[in-house]
Amino acid sequence: MAKARKVEVSEQQKKEILSIVDKYKGTKGALIPVLHEVQEYFGYLPLEVQEIISDNLNVPLAEIYGVVTFYTQFTTQPKGKYAVNVCLGTACYVKGSAKILEKFEETLGIKAGGVTEDGMFSIDACRCVGACGLAPVAMINGEVYGKLVQDDVKSICEKYMEN
């Protein structure tokens, strides 16, 4: 939560962020779609990016940060190149997804919410992804892995490591 090192936003990136802001500027409820698209583009929403949005959308920074920290889908920390999301929704949980999460943490050597030092992987616990029939479920960059057992985890990770 506390400010980490300064994040560099290049001129090109700033231009891109401003074009997203311009698309929604003046419409009611513009903030959330702007945050979505900017996060999709920039990967996360650090202070420097929120300041650009605040300045150009005329929404106070405190309000933006309030929204970003309220919704779990927004993040102020960079994610790994491969973002692992383990579902801890009810169905997955009763099917043992906590054990799956543990295995990911052990395999990648980081805790949920963290990023590996090389920036390749991040792990997050998430709520229901709508694939309860496949419980327990994990997603990596939008790709769904279902009916997981602990032994699957290592080979899944290795698949991305090879890339």
Partner: peptide, 27 residues
Amino acid sequence: CENLQKVHVIDALNRGFKTEIGPAFGK
């Protein structure tokens, strides 16, 4: 801060039990 003064440097941050009032980014 928000409605009377339109300064708005504090807001509700995080959610649930972790809700806190303060400036952005723990400043």
